[in-house]
């Protein structure tokens, strides 16, 4: 097994052949050996393409090759003349709607699930399930559900005077948002549930004795105590929704008439449908910058709470 054990009992424990500096060097080597392979893989697959995208975004594209340097012209073009701002605006609508609906839903369900009840395990399992389903499947299931000819909602749609859902420019975004809420509320719910478990039950009992109604208990006592976790969940949901491509791709492809062309989708389409590499790269850099900006803002907000 280990060298110390094969020595005669009573002898010193340390390995006599290694000097202290030698064993330190071994540990250092071990550190490199353990860490670098992972890091190099990540660098190759994530950093190299990233730099390529950044590089491409400030150059023109010659089909698949990089052309001449153009400075920020691509960005100006995309934002000012090519609908870039509109795409960002649609992203904001999509994210805003999704998060504003998913958060209360997730928190509310978590509060309900936090009490002991019959069939609690069943409810928990079913209510978390949408998170486990792929974006593509989510899109497919809802696309079929929304179908205005053969889907089950057509009766209801007719009575409300809605011609179509996902194919109608007025309703497409709302339909997408609903689908996205379905997919993303479980994240908020799971995080909130975990946070609720950390609230000591005696504190809630004290509030009950103090005469607070259920709503007051939640608003004045529970919510402040889970606020930080809630913030994390909201930020994660926001970023995830902002970067969503697949669901939108399969449900609307950006239509009808560009009503749902969010920025993330734009990146995909420019690269894989229109093959305009410089626009794709520019949009990619844009979305990366927005991700970074938002993450930094979030870190700042989280830190300020711990003052």
């Amino acid at each position: 097994m280990n060298t110390a054990m094969t020595q005669a009992p009573g002898s010193t424990m340390s390995q006599p052949t290694r000097s202290r500096r030698g064993s330190q060097a071994l540990r250092l080597l071990q550190g490199y050996a353990f860490f670098y392979p992972a890091f190099l893989l990540v660098a190759a697959v994530l950093f190299v393409p990233l730099f390529h995208a950044i590089w491409q975004s400030v150059h023109a594209a010659d089909y698949m090759e990089i052309g001449r340097f153009v400075g920020l012209a691509n960005f100006v073009n995309l934002l000012m003349h090519d609908g870039g701002l509109r795409d960002i605006g649609l992203s904001i609508v999509f994210v805003g709607g999704s998060v504003l609906l998913a958060t209360p839903l997730g928190v509310g369900l978590a509060v309900l699930l936090n009490r002991p009840m019959r069939w609690r395990a069943f409810f928990r399992t079913v209510l978390v399930a949408p998170w486990v389903v792929s974006q593509l499947v989510t899109g497919l299931l809802w696309l079929w559900l929304y179908d205005d000819r053969l889907g089950p909602l057509q009766a209801m749609m007719q009575s409300l005077g809605i011609r179509a859902l996902i194919t109608d420019p007025d309703w497409a975004m709302a339909s997408l948002i609903l689908t996205n809420v379905w997919h993303s509320y479980p994240l908020v719910m799971v995080f909130t549930l975990a946070a609720l478990q950390t609230v000591p039950s005696e504190v809630i009992e004290a509030a009950t004795i103090d005469g607070a109604s259920a709503w007051r208990r939640f608003w004045r006592i529970t919510l402040p105590l889970i606020r930080n976790t809630l913030k994390v969940a909201v930020v994660l949901t926001t970023l995830h929704t902002f970067n969503t491509v697949t669901t939108i791709l399969i449900m609307t492809g950006g239509g009808p008439a560009g009503a749902t062309e969010v920025l993330a989708l734009r990146v995909f389409k420019e690269g894989f449908q229109f093959f305009r590499m410089e626009v794709a790269a520019t949009a990619a850099v844009l979305i990366l910058l927005l991700n970074i900006a938002f993450s930094l803002a979030f870190v700042r907000v989280l830190k300020s709470d711990h003052a």
């Binding site: 540990r27 250092l28 071990q30 550190g31 490199y32 353990f34 860490f35 890091f39 990540v42 660098a43 697959v45 994530l46 950093f47 190299v48 393409p49 990233l50 390529h52 995208a53 491409q56 970023l239 902002f242 970067n243 491509v245 993330a264 990146v267 995909f268 420019e270 690269g271 894989f272 590499m277 794709a280 790269a281 990619a284 850099v285 979305i287 990366l288 991700n291 970074i292 993450s295």
Partner: peptide, 28 residues
């Protein structure tokens, strides 16, 4: 374990989490 540049490398590693998949698929 300790190794040289650990802090920087870790920072780079964690920063990749901010990279949305869609941003790198075309150059990839």
């Amino acid at each position: 374990l300790r190794f040289r540049g650990k802090d920087l490398l870790l920072f780079l590693l964690w920063s990749t989490i901010m990279i949305p998949t869609v941003a790198i698929i075309v150059p990839l």
